[in-house]
Amino acid sequence: MMNAIKKYIGIVWIALAAAVAYYSIGIFGGKLTSGKQDDLVFGIIIFFVLLPLVVTGLTIFGWYAMTNEYED
């Protein structure tokens, strides 16, 4: 029972990673093209530092939950 729940939660984590990537690009995409220097710096930090870390972390966590890596 618990393993099935872990697998479903793994799918939720991976879907959450995709949603975060999609909405972050939609929301912070305007920061890169606004023309203001402050927005450009903020957008670059979000896109090239924080977004890959968050999406990769959620995806790996979801993958491990789906493949029962947390069994031990």
Rank of each mutant, 00 (worst) to 15 (best):
M1D: 13
M2W: 13
N3R: 14
N3D: 05
A4Y: 15
I5G: 07
I5W: 14
I5L: 15
K7H: 12
K7L: 06
I9S: 14
G10L: 14
G10F: 13
V12C: 14
W13S: 03
I14F: 02
I14C: 10
L16M: 13
L16W: 09
L16D: 07
L16Y: 12
A17R: 14
V20K: 01
V20Q: 04
V20N: 01
V20C: 03
A21Q: 09
A21Y: 15
A21T: 05
A21K: 03
A21E: 13
Y22A: 07
Y22H: 01
Y22N: 01
Y23L: 10
Y23R: 01
Y23E: 03
Y23K: 04
S24W: 03
G26I: 07
I27M: 08
I27W: 06
I27T: 11
I27R: 07
F28L: 11
F28E: 05
G29S: 05
G29Q: 06
G29R: 07
G30P: 01
K31R: 05
K31Y: 14
L32G: 09
L32N: 07
T33K: 10
S34N: 08
G35T: 05
G35F: 09
Q37I: 11
Q37E: 11
Q37N: 09
Q37W: 15
Q37M: 12
D38F: 15
L40Y: 15
L40G: 03
L40Q: 08
F42V: 06
G43L: 13
G43N: 13
G43D: 09
I45Q: 12
I45R: 15
I45S: 10
I46S: 00
F47C: 01
F47S: 03
F48G: 12
F48C: 08
V49T: 11
L50I: 15
P52G: 00
P52N: 03
L53T: 11
V54T: 10
V55P: 01
V55M: 00
G57F: 14
G57S: 11
L58D: 02
I60G: 00
F61V: 06
W63N: 02
W63T: 02
M66C: 12
N68Y: 06
E69N: 08
E69D: 08
E71T: 09
D72W: 10
